[in-house]
Design a protein around this nucleic acid. Structure first.
Length: 214
DNA sequence: CCGCCGATCTTT
DNA sequence: AAGATCGGCGGG
């Protein structure tokens, strides 16, 4: 009998399947909280998503999809599980996850994440641990911290060097996920849609980008 | 083609 | 409170 389980391997970080993204955008947004952004390859980084915003289809007056499938926004109308990256104010990048079935517009803006690290000697199968690094708080800083640019636009998040995975750590080690919602940030031009509660965040998390924080 | 303006961030 | 900085989009 081999009852020695001292070196029990941690579960691998498996990319979420396309079916995760092929759902109503608000559901995907909520479910992305607490998930891990995993970048493999030369630049290896792991970050825990703590703040997101849902951007709906052509009716959402804050969404880039509001004017239909223009050259920039076309990707929001495409198949789910792909990355949508755009440049804002001529200097910052914002990264989104495309949602809804092919032909229906939808995306979730990733606004803030908690920097983590992979414990040795793991790599892809080891447990994430806190990382001492400048916060990834704010969509522009999140992209800068992960090295995401427009070159990554269209990336397939289900099979590549950038994926989103379930946090493998035991729930008791991470703590409960207290999800709250608020109006989205920086969309005051969107009329009635500016007030919709489409920002989701983990209450009290120290890495949130804006108010309210709890 | 021209002009406006933004799903931001940093500095004043 | 304002500036940096540029590409997407709409109007002419």
């Amino acid at each position: 009998m081999s009852s020695a389980v001292a070196a029990l391997p941690a579960p691998p970080l498996v990319a979420l399947p396309r079916s995760f993204y092929e759902r109503p955008t608000v559901e995907v947004a909520r479910d992305l909280l607490g998930k891990l952004l995993v970048r493999t390859g030369p630049l290896e980084r792991v970050a825990r998503i703590v703040e997101v915003e849902a951007y709906l289809g052509v009716k959402d007056q804050a969404s880039h999809a509001r004017r239909g499938p223009t050259p920039r926004a076309a990707i929001m109308f495409g198949p789910p599980g792909h990355l949508y990256v755009y440049l804002i104010y001529g200097m910052h990048h914002c990264m989104n996850v495309v949602t809804e079935r092919d032909g229906v517009a939808g995306a979730v803006l990733l606004r803030a994440a908690e920097p983590l690290d992979l414990a040795e000697p793991g790599r892809r199968s080891s447990v994430p641990v806190p990382r001492l690094e400048r916060p990834l708080s704010g969509p522009g800083k999140l992209c800068a911290g992960l090295g995401i640019t427009r070159a990554d636009n269209g990336l397939d998040l289900t099979a590549g060097h950038l994926v989103i995975a379930v946090d493998p750590r035991p729930a008791r080690a991470v703590g409960p996920l207290r999800v709250k919602r608020s109006a989205r940030i920086g969309v005051d031009y969107a009329g009635a849609w500016a007030g919709r509660l489409l920002r989701f965040y983990l209450a009290g998390n120290p890495y949130l980008s804006g108010k309210p924080r709890d």
